[in-house]
Design a binder for these strands. Structure first.
Length: 261
DNA sequence: ATGGTAGGTTACCTA
C-alpha cells in the first residue's frame, strides 16, 4: 500500500497538476492539505470518475483537508478532538481496508506565525491535542500513519538556511519540542530514517518567493509518522521533488511511504 | 532590512 501526503495549495487551481501526479505516482491513498474549498466546492466527481473514493473536510477560503483512496475507506472522522469550538478544517481520519487495515490520520498543522501571539498559542494548543489523539491511536495497536503538513522544521538540517528560521513558528524551540513530544510517543519519522546521517535535507517545501526553488532553499515540513505496527511494514519512502518543477506547481511536493499491507 | 509570489476572497488575509 502506497500512502502519500500532498499540500496542494488550492485544489481548484491545482486540478491538472494533481491529476497528472495521481496518474504517474501509483498511490493507493493520498491525503491532501490546503484544499481551500468547502466540501460542496471540491471537484469530487472529477476524481471519482478517475476511480478515487473522496472524503473531504473543507472550509471557506483557507485550510481544508481530504483523502483520496483507491481502496475502500471505513470509519471516517473529521476534525481533531479536544476543542468543540475549533472551526478550522485541519484533520481527517479513516481506515483503509486492504490485506491489513491501516488507520490514516491526515493533518494540516497550524502555521503559527507570527510568534508570539494568538496564532502561535493556537498552534501549540493544537499540537497538544494532536499528542493526545496520537496516544489513543498508538494504544489501538493498529498500523497507523499520521501524515501531512506539520509546519514543523524538526532540526537545523531540515532547512537549507536554518538561521533564516530562528524566529519563525515553524522552527522555534517550543514548536520543535512539541513535535518531539509527539514523535517520542513511539512514532517513526519515515523520511528521516531513510537517511539518518544526512547533514542537509531532504526538503519538501520551497517558497514561491525569492527564487527559493532555483536556489534549493527548501525546508522539510511534510512528515509521515508511523506507529510501531506501521513501521514494521515499511518498505520504501520517497519525495516526488520533480513535482515542484512542473506547470503551476504547489509550493509543497508529495511525500510517500510504501507499506507491506 | 526589505520584498519577493501565490490562491482565494472581495478588499485583504494567509502562507
Amino acid at each position: 500500500m502506497k500512502i502519500a501526503t500532498f499540500n496542494i495549495n488550492g485544489v481548484k487551481a491545482r486540478i491538472q497538476a494533481l491529476t497528472d501526479w495521481l496518474a504517474a505516482a501509483g498511490a493507493d491513498v493520498v491525503v491532501l492539505q490546503e484544499i481551500k474549498s468547502v466540501d460542496e466546492g471540491f471537484p469530487r466527481e472529477h476524481f471519482e470518475d478517475l476511480g478515487w473514493t473522496v472524503e473531504t473536510h473543507g472550509q471557506k477560503g483557507f485550510n481544508g483537508v481530504a483523502i483520496l483512496s483507491r481502496l475502500p475507506l471505513e470509519d471516517v472522522a473529521r476534525g481533531l478532538p479536544g476543542d468543540e469550538a475549533d472551526e478550522q478544517a485541519r484533520y481527517i481520519e479513516a481506515t483503509v481496508i486492504d490485506s491489513i487495515p491501516v488507520r490514516i490520520a491526515g493533518l494540516y498543522l497550524p502555521n503559527g506565525n507570527p510568534a508570539p501571539g494568538p496564532k502561535y498559542d493556537y498552534k501549540l494548543a493544537w499540537m497538544e491535542r494532536l499528542r493526545l489523539r496520537g496516544a489513543e491511536l498508538l494504544a489501538s495497536e493498529m498500523p497507523v500513519v499520521m501524515l501531512g503538513d506539520f509546519n514543523i522544521i524538526p532540526e537545523p538540517r531540515d532547512a537549507a538556511r536554518p538561521q533564516a528560521w530562528v524566529d519563525d513558528a515553524l522552527f522555534l524551540p517550543e514548536s520543535r519540542a512539541a513535535f518531539r513530544r509527539i514523535l517520542h510517543q513511539g512514532w517513526t519519522d519515515a523520511v528521516r530514517i531513510r537517511d539518518p546521517w544526512a547533514t542537509r535535507g531532504p526538503f519538501t517545501f520551497w517558497d514561491y518567493q525569492a527564487g527559493a526553488w532555483s536556489r534549493d532553499d527548501g525546508i522539510r515540513i511534510d512528515h509521515l509518522l508511523l506507529s510501531p505496527q506501521a513501521a514494521d511494514l515499511l518498505i520504501e519512502t520517497g519525495i516526488d521533488k520533480e513535482a515542484r518543477a512542473g506547470e503551476k506547481p504547489s509550493d509543497h511536493v508529495p511525500v510517500w511511504v510504501r507499506l507491506a499491507a
